[in-house]
Write a protein that binds this DNA or RNA. Structure first.
Lengths: 115, 115
DNA sequence: CATTATACTGTGTGTCGCACTATATTGTCA
DNA sequence: TGACAATATAGTGCGACACACAGTATAATG
């Protein structure tokens, strides 16, 4: 899709990376993918299943998450949780995020008028 | 660099996209690349020349920026400024950024303890 | 004659979106 | 009841694009 809606691309790029932060933050309690998806969407975090599942597996392979199948219910669900390493990374990313907020605010004029 | 400092990669990804926002926000007044670089670094926005210059050209090719060579001084400088389109995109990205702040705060626990 | 100021290019890697596949469990309706 | 759709749940493969990095290039300045 070359030129359909270029704005969309900017938004995508902006959200990029923050998705990881949001996922890590949401997995301080165990959750399975499908539920996580809905949690995030309720928070206005625009991510779709096709993006989330690979992200979860990537984070697991990077050892930020651990996963366990819960087969006690009729429908098996794969629960993900933050590992110790994941908690550390989350904490540092959150700090960075907060620092970025300050920087962006400074550069973009905190509260100034931009039309 | 496969496994040297994986943390660095997470940070890079997190910052990604925000760079564009920061650059757009900084170019509401005309600036040339080298000066912009230093402005951003003073604001703790970690970007290097090799990243900034391609970014500027990309934004120009996407018609968010316009550029003009100033050759009146001994050292020629290429001044970039937000175009009308650039202002629109900036405004929308900034809104998205603010919305993301809220979402991330909600998901990551606004002010809760995370150690 | 080294350093700084200033700008550009090419290559690799990683993430994300998107379009798929796959399956079991519900719910609906003839 | 039995057919069929919808939902819940998870996965894969591919392509686009942006960023980091390591280069090149040149003119002014100290």
């Amino acid at each position: 899709m070359p030129e359909l809606e270029p704005m969309q691309n900017f938004l995508t790029e902006l959200r990029r990376g923050s998705l990881t932060l949001a996922v890590l933050g949401s997995l301080r309690q165990p959750r399975y993918g499908y539920a996580l998806l809905q949690t995030l969407q309720e928070q206005n975090i625009d991510i779709e299943a096709n993006t989330l599942y690979p992200l979860l597996r990537r984070l697991e392979s990077q050892e930020l998450l651990t996963s366990d199948w819960d087969t006690s219910e009729s429908r098996p669900r794969k629960y993900y949780t933050l590992s110790r390493k994941g908690k550390e990374v989350f904490s540092r990313l959150l700090k960075e995020w907060e620092s970025m907020q300050a920087s962006i605010s400074a550069v973009c004029g905190k509260g100034e008028n931009h039309e």
